[in-house]
């Protein structure tokens, strides 16, 4: 059993990270905590995709060496370079995730302006019974 876990230990750790993010999105009542959970969730999935492109056995970063110097015919071997495709896709995903976070934070500020709280249960109570709304000056 321990050998079975140790053979793919990093996948187990990604699953644990994703569970932390999912729990923060579902179980926490504070809206900022929910957003932090969403960030953790996204980062764990990006980490999973990046780790797919890893090649063992002497592969380096996907930048062709010896380009432009000497003009010799360099023989490019596929096993010498990491898989560049997950890196490209995850570059897009990181930028989109920060755009999502920005819009979510703007909505959060609007929610705070209207309800003067960030706790989900208090917001739901105010929506159910508007007389419990306390103004902050």
């Amino acid at each position: 059993m321990l050998e079975y876990i140790l053979a793919k230990y990093n996948f187990w750790i990604y699953v644990v990270l994703m569970m932390i993010g999912l729990y923060a999105m579902m179980g926490k009542r504070n809206l900022v905590k929910k957003l932090i959970g969403m960030n953790i969730f996204q980062t764990s999935i990006i980490l999973f995709f990046v780790s797919i492109g890893v090649k063992k056995g002497g592969a380096t970063v996907p930048i062709i060496m010896g380009h432009g110097h000497g003009h010799g015919q360099h023989l490019i071997k596929v096993a010498d370079y990491l898989n560049p495709l997950p890196h490209v896709l995850m570059l897009t995903a990181i930028v989109v995730s920060i755009a999502t976070t920005g819009v979510a934070l703007a909505t959060l500020i609007l929610i705070y302006k209207r309800y003067h709280t960030l706790e989900e249960d208090e917001i739901l109570a105010i929506r159910k019974d508007p007389s419990s709304y306390k103004t902050l000056g």
Binding site: K8, N10, V15, I52, V54, K55, K56, G57, V78, L85
Partner: peptide, 26 residues
């Protein structure tokens, strides 16, 4: 996870199908 290829395998499907073309031709 049980069905995933071993971590860092150079011959896994993700590393063997599309990306060699990019590495060789880019």
């Amino acid at each position: 996870i049980h069905d995933m290829p071993a971590w860092g395998d150079p011959d896994s499907p993700a590393n063997a199908h599309v990306s060699p073309r990019y590495i060789l031709e880019a």
